[in-house]
Write a protein that binds this DNA or RNA. Structure first.
Lengths: 132, 132
DNA sequence: GCTTGCCTTGGTGTGCACTCGAAGGTTTAT
DNA sequence: ATAAACCTTCGAGTGCACACCAAGGCAAGC
């Protein structure tokens, strides 16, 4: 699969695909006889994975570092542990965002009442429960 | 409250506070006799609100646009509707991120099995249910 | 009255993550 | 055989969101 097809399949620009490869998010892609990139299905899977993590807000730099560390460890359990840590970090961010959504919901529900004090805004924001 | 106090109270740099005001995220802050900014508690609340939305990933530009639209409408119901739309947009993003977390969880749970095909990766990613 | 420590504006610099342009090579169609 | 439509690399440009000066003003303490 050439770069144009991958670009369309995954919705990532060709420039970005080349950029990701250059900075080390992708291992060097195999080339065909003309020197054109020829992506394997494993490459596609990997790019899919990278895209998910980029969309979730992980920086390119920290992803590169993660990949290097991940590759250094042939220890299976260690690798699994790294995935778990990565997942938990995203989960933490998720909860931060949930706070903001709850805060907005609080504002909506109290829209007709008077202006909130700073302390109440803070409480609404920090609130653990989901508000609908 | 002066800029230094607000900066410390909310954990936002003084430069950022001035920048937000300059681009229109904040209405012009009242000045004291020396020309120094003097933030009211309403300003603080507003900044708290802006910070929450910035942390949730809304761009400065789209926030500025939102504020202008919001101000244009004296119609209360319309304003409330805008807040709801804003909340729902964040909720949508939240669900995208949840997908990524689920996807990672799936990878962790299937860590010991063979490599996933692209279709299975995609399915794992799109999965609606929470996986632990 | 001079230093210290705030604040002000205006302009420039920075880091990230692309994004684009130029120059050139290969295959396909006319 | 010439144009169109791909691809390549390399280097430079872009947009966002600040971050960092420099130059200068005000107020308090010594």
């Amino acid at each position: 699969m050439n770069i144009n097809q991958v670009s369309k399949k995954l919705g990532i620009s060709k420039d970005t695909l080349r950029y990701w490869e250059r900075v080390g998010l992708l291992k060097p892609i195999k080339r065909d006889v003309n020197g054109y990139r020829d992506y394997s299905k494993y490459d596609i899977n990997w790019i899919f994975y990278i895209r998910a993590l980029r969309n979730a807000g992980m920086s390119v730099d920290s992803l590169v570092k993660f990949i290097h560390l991940y590759d250094e460890h042939s220890d299976k359990e260690k690798r699994k542990q790294m995935l778990i840590e990565q997942r938990d970090a995203l989960l933490k961010d998720l909860n931060e965002r949930r706070k903001t959504v709850n805060y907005l919901s609080y504002k909506i529900n109290h829209f007709d009442t008077t202006l909130l004090t700073y302390e109440n805004e803070k409480l609404a924001y920090e609130s653990k429960e989901d508000i609908r």
